[in-house]
Design a protein around this nucleic acid. Structure first.
Lengths: 207, 207
DNA sequence: GCCTGTGAAGCTATTCACAGCT
DNA sequence: AGCTGTGAATAGCTTCACAGGC
């Protein structure tokens, strides 16, 4: 597998969504400059990214929309559909459940965990809620490899350790603290506080 | 103004939060390698970032925790405290309100907007909710320069245009579509779908 | 000694620019 | 003509490595 950058993978995910919209609009082919305009990128960037999936454009018609979407899917998706575990069913956790509910069948949240016993057994936005004690068992039983983390900062590292022990290989973290994980576990951080401060800074700076 | 990169600004925001924790723990000074360990970074990166705020470490004691936090604040923060507008009070919008409620007094959400008239007038997580029609008036009256966007994708571009017209200079967007904005308006995108797909990809890849 | 601050080197990501195709 | 695919060039970010200080 030729090494692909983090950023390229992200953009491929975006391209696929844009292609899905084009497909529902009945559009059959796109040029790199059109896709770039939709993605807020450049034609060269789009073509470079598409090299990762094996390029398949024709100089005359550009790229076939549905064919390209499938190729990106073949590159990004696993063969089987994957379940995701959510840890932390507070305000943010519930919003995440709602956000992903019924979106992509290939990648959906199949189990939620919380250390508040009152939440165990409830079904929120279509997702069953378990007590934290059952984390390892449920993750093993359903072969879950990806987790979304929405717990308070002081619990984040402890829960992360438990996730790693349970066999989780990728974590989407909403905790505003960096997580320490062993090599082989991928962490993507969404730090809303940092993002908002960046926006405020550059808004003032007039950039 | 020496130009500072996007990434440096983000890390400075993180360093400040870490320094705050150190301060409450009663720690008075840190070395770059200690701060780097907390931030999941490297000593050289930390020192390079701190050049932006004007370096003030001593070779013997490292950096004074509270003094450094203040310096970063002087660099990142505006003189006056700034209000943020939230657009879209759905599941995600309410979670964002809860997340930022009562956190930083300098940068807090002071007005929420939604096109559902049933929400107008309500107070959610301490924030007053207005109908969309009042956007321009409230933004002008309170001199709001920063907005957080949590509306459905198909409304995102329209609302963005309204925000720009109202004088907003920075947008934190949770919409899974790229926004077109004129130069001078900074946009930071938090695309949870993209992030989750990245995590799933690299989790499988064993990176 | 071990630290900071920083020029210089090294890397990675993006953009250019052009050969090749239709 | 106008497009794709890609080596080469550029820009941007990170790391190295060392002078200077305590």
């Amino acid at each position: 597998m030729p090494k692909v950058s983090d950023k390229t993978v992200g953009r491929l995910s975006l391209y696929r969504r844009l292609l899905g919209r084009l497909a529902t609009d009945g559009i059959e082919s796109v040029y790199s400059h059109e896709l770039a305009a939709l993605a807020g990128s450049t034609p060269a960037q789009v073509r470079r990214d598409l090299m990762a999936v094996g390029s398949l454009g024709s100089p005359t018609r550009g790229y076939n929309v549905s064919h390209l979407a499938d190729s990106i899917g073949g590159f990004l998706d696993s063969d089987a559909s994957e379940g995701v575990a959510l840890i932390g069913v507070g305000n943010l956790g519930r919003a995440i459940l709602a956000y992903f509910a019924g979106r992509r069948p290939r990648l959906s949240i199949v189990a939620a965990f919380d250390n508040d016993p009152a939440k165990a057994g409830r079904v929120i936005h279509g997702c069953r809620c378990y007590p934290m004690e059952e984390l390892a068992a449920v993750v093993a039983e359903r072969s879950i490899k990806v987790a979304a983390l929405a717990v308070p900062p002081q619990e984040a590292q402890g829960v992360t350790n438990a996730l790693v022990d349970a066999g989780i290989k990728g974590i989407l973290s909403f905790a505003p603290v960096p997580l320490r994980t062993p090599r082989g576990v991928y962490v993507e951080d969404i730090d809303m506080t940092m993002s908002l401060e960046k926006v405020a800074f550059f808004a003032r700076q007039g950039a």
